[in-house]
Nucleic acid binder design. Structure first.
Lengths: 207, 207
DNA sequence: TATAATTAACTAAGTGTTTAGTTAGTATAA
DNA sequence: TTATACTAACTAAACACTTAGTTAATTATA
């Protein structure tokens, strides 16, 4: 077997783990089941990862890395966009991100919901996303010749509650809303975007 | 050894279970630990509950029952309140609810985040809360002589994303924001209320 | 009113099963 | 022939749940 097979095998293990973690949670997941779904022997998992926990950490690291890349790319693509267009661009990045990463976000939220999760991945995600929002706002203030109040920590909380958590809940409950109420993905996103924009405009611009 | 009050003992078991579930999740929780924390023999837990799962179901049933009571009481207390006051009343009920029930809400969110959770307790909570919001809105439309568009399901989704999930995240991440950013509970709630009101006004009244 | 019968509340010490992780080895490509 | 990729078979520990009782209090009976 050559090296390319190994990379692909490792990816298959991670993918199977992601599926199973998102279905039954980390503690509920069985390494045997991950191995079975990945089509490998269980011992091979311990050849690539030192523990079940390291599989989760690898998945979380990739998630953080991916969202960081996504945000950076978006900012480089539209460096001067602010206001309405800025929100739209940010919204598109978020929605693409949570749609793509829905499964692992479920796991992150479930793990963060545990009380002892001090090094919470959701907080880490939140900080990344908040910084992106601040960047959009900063441009907006700048364009108006105003100084952005950098140190206002309450703003971060506002951003978190009004900005990040609806996206997380979108990732968590999208399927259920679609099934239970027959809502299309497009309809969901349209209404969601209106709420997102209004909440942000209300929070930052109208007073 | 003296016999203790059975009702009180059962309550102690449930309380210990709630603590441990919220710390390490349902699958991560050990029945031995619950017994130890409740100060009873493990077998007594199986005397009162047929399984570990039944403990969780009992806790979830109580949560649903409690929120239902809370909402009904609030509506009976302020039957004609609408508009700004209506939102304030609803907000107060919500915030009191999530503050009191924070621990079990963590568990509910963690469990709901698992993909197979079809009979999701969060969806059940969501429907209860959504109905309460609709009631406030209905009064508002009525007072203005307008007919409330009952069948708009998109409204439910809006309510869910903009109304319920920030409360859930408040329950989940309040401690972390307080610790990490030194925010007081009052400051959090004040800003949170502004966001809540604006999001709702924006969603329902400004178009 | 004393005591025997009954039951609710509780426990020590398991049982069998499931689990994460290991060992000791084989096959293959370079 | 050496390093990488892989597996069947295994183990120790952890786990949910059970068994086989005990204790304390209540109720029925003499």
């Amino acid at each position: 077997m050559n090296k390319r097979d190994a990379v692909e095998t490792k990816a298959r293990i991670l993918s199977a783990a992601e599926d199973i973690f998102s279905e039954v949670g980390f503690d509920g997941a069985r390494v045997d089941d991950i191995a079975k779904d990945a089509g490998v022997n269980k011992a091979l998992i311990y050849y690539y990862f030192k523990s079940k926990n390291e599989i989760l950490e690898t998945l979380f690291s990739s998630l953080i890395e991916d969202v960081r890349k996504m945000l950076i790319e978006s900012m480089e693509r539209t460096p001067d966009v602010c206001g309405d267009d800025g929100y739209r661009a940010l919204f598109d990045v978020y929605i693409r991100f949570v749609s793509q990463k829905r499964k692992i976000i479920r796991v992150a939220v479930a793990e963060s919901a545990k009380m002892d999760a001090t090094s919470s991945i959701v907080m880490e995600l939140g900080n990344l996303i908040i910084n992106a929002e601040i960047e959009v706002l900063r441009k907006e203030y700048e364009k108006k010749g105003l100084h952005f109040p950098k140190d206002k920590q309450e703003l971060l909380v506002m951003e978190f509650f009004t900005g990040l958590t609806p996206f997380l809940s979108y990732a968590l409950y999208k399927d259920q809303w679609e099934n239970q109420y027959g809502l299309s993905e497009k309809a969901l996103q349209d209404y969601f975007y209106q709420a997102f924009k209004k909440a942000h405009l209300a929070a930052h611009l109208s007073e």
